[in-house]
Amino acid sequence: MLTAAKRQFKISMLSTKYALMRAMVNKATFVMSIVFMILNNATFIIQYLILFSLKEDVGGYTFNQVLMLWALASGTFGVAHFFFKKAFNLSETITNGKLDAYIVQPKNILLQALTSDIDSSAIGDMLYGFILIFVSGITIKKFIFFTIFLILGGFIHVAFAVILASFSFWISRSDIIADTFNSMITHINTYPEGIFGGITRVVLYTLIPVGFISYVPVQVLTSFNIMSFIYVLLFTAFIIGLAFFMFYKGLKKYSSSNLMISKI
């Protein structure tokens, strides 16, 4: 079991390495996409400068907390899209019958598929997250927990995307639904929890789990609380489990490229 996990990890890292090599074939484009992504993310500062000029807090957050919120939003997005880019077009992979190549390999199908590509601009998102967390004031403890939250939040993003994509096993053209919800979670992630009312907040801790990606982590980074940290840990484990369950449940319905062929 342990050696199998170790081998799986080795292969996933190898895939990521090869995909990174591919992205770096053109160095100028590679570097530019990272730098521009950082600039792109930085424009939000203008938005919040204006909001804070109108009011002392936005949704109960101080400017410093907004920085943390953004650090988490952009960092988790970066982790998810860099290491697991395929999660965000898994829907197409399923409907076009492109899972075949991973199924015939003696490894975990989902992990093989997810790690087969990277998004180089996501490096910019990750870097940006770290830049902001440094700007917001850093201690070693904060840095360590921030890094852990990035990984956990990245996993939640990916698991959420996999659950959405798994619907493609049953429903054709559900890729639009997946795209819509994936971009929604990214957007909501950048707004403070306090602007939302009660029912919406319930949704944000369940159906659209932004709460565990950034709201709880912002709390923990502001004033440390071990229980909140454990909640995030537990939720991450739960949603990953759910993602695997949904994917493997759907896989039995997988129709490879046959539906495509018979459509012609």
Binding site: I103, V104, Y254, S255, S256, N258, I261
Partner: peptide, 16 residues
């Protein structure tokens, strides 16, 4: 469209 690929995919675990 005869069913060749479908058969081979069932033999190789791709299709149930």
């Amino acid at each position: 469209g005869a069913g060749k690929s479908t058969t081979i995919k069932m033999l190789t675990c791709i299709l149930y």
